[in-house]
């Protein structure tokens, strides 16, 4: 129907003007997502910003108030039956029958899938459980699973069949450090196989380590979207110069068109064991994306007689960027 093949990039998920209202509250507000195939797409946003709701809309669990979604090139929810077998999903935590074992739960879900061959079911369940490290707990009742074990089982469910797209809503929720790392490795290896992975998360460090693309939601709206680098670059970087010659450094940097400031007075920036550093201070300046390369700045400083004892270009952290986009406030927006 409304499918327009994008010549540049094929999109695994695309939404146009996607809106969902619950009563008078707009949980998702005119969201235009574009998730390229083959990417690991981080979907960020504070609590209640509409991430899970967007995922529900994309998977056809809920009907959009307005706007369109297409997944793997097909409109949803119209082509749901063709699309969903190619999608693995973990939506807002796992949901399993507590009175059945982990393996039995996977068997049940797999047998609901008409495309999943029953002949290989046992082997596939086994492999999926092994992949999330639940091989030993396969026969245990899910009611007796810990939070992290359930979460792993949810992941195993998404991995039962080879998928083109994985939608993981907070996959590392409740996982131990090893589990978190395993998930990261898992996502990387799946991505290497060509699977598109759409991950929603609050753990920025996680996202930063595994994602190639990022989108940020705030109060139901999409506030930023692009590759990780684009997003970081959009934030401000700073140069930091450690030197005892504060005044000279300020002058040179100002001459270069930057807006330097003394961030630490002399004698404070030391403490790294270097005998010379006891009288160092720090001057820093925001770096515009189009300003000179770092090496040119260092050369200018040295030429200006500044004793450069340390020089760093600090990229804005994703956290800074995230807070800048979604606001400082701790309270839930709506």
């Amino acid at each position: 129907m409304g499918e327009q093949p994008n010549p540049a990039v094929e999109l695994a998920i695309e939404t146009r003007g996607l809106t969902k209202r619950f009563g008078h509250q707009t949980a998702v507000n005119a969201v235009d997502l574009a998730v390229p195939r083959g990417s690991v797409f981080g979907f960020l946003g504070p609590n209640g910003s509409g991430k899970t709701t967007t995922i529900r809309l994309a998977l056809g669990l809920a009907a959009a108030t307005s706007g369109q979604v297409s997944v793997l090139g097909q409109t949803m929810p119209g082509r749901l039956k063709d699309v969903l077998p190619r999608v693995g999903a973990l939506v807002e935590g796992p949901g399993f029958y507590p009175f059945l074992s982990g393996a039995a739960n996977l068997h049940r879900l797999d047998s609901a899938d008409r495309y999943a061959p029953s002949a290989t079911r046992r082997a596939r369940v086994h492999r999926a459980l092994d992949r999330v490290g639940l091989g030993h707990a396969a026969g245990k009742k899910v009611g007796a699973y810990s939070l992290g074990m359930k979460q792993r089982l949810g992941l195993a469910n998404a991995l039962l069949m080879p998928r083109e797209l994985l939608v993981l809503d907070e996959p590392t929720n409740g996982l131990d450090p090893q589990g978190t790392r395993e998930v990261r490795n898992l996502v990387r290896s799946l991505a290497a196989e060509g699977t598109t992975v759409f991950v929603s998360s609050h753990l920025l460090a996680e996202v930063e380590q595994m994602c190639s693309h990022i989108a940020v939601m705030s109060v139901g709206s999409l506030v930023a979207q692009g590759t990780l680098d684009e997003l970081r670059r959009a934030g401000e970087s700073r140069v930091r110069v450690r030197t005892p010659d504060i005044a000279a450094a300020l002058r040179v940097l100002a001459a270069l068109g930057l807006a330097p400031e003394q961030t630490e007075p002399p004698g404070r920036a030391g403490g790294d064991g270097n005998d010379d550093s006891h009288d160092d201070g720090v001057v820093s300046a925001p770096l515009a994306p189009d300003s000179r390369p770092a090496e040119a700045i260092v050369a200018a400083l040295v030429a200006g007689g500044v004793r450069v004892r340390g020089f760093t270009v600090e990229r804005a952290s994703l956290e800074d960027r995230f807070v800048a986009l979604t606001g400082e406030g701790f309270d839930i927006a709506q």
Binding site: R56, L59, G60, L61, L80, K81, L84, P85, V87, A89, V91, E92, G93, P94, G95, F96, Y97, P98, L109, A112, D113, N157
Partner: peptide
């Protein structure tokens, strides 16, 4: 139980 959404996503 939350299993409904997984059954429907299967689909």
């Amino acid at each position: 139980l939350g299993t409904l959404r997984y059954l429907l996503v299967v689909p």
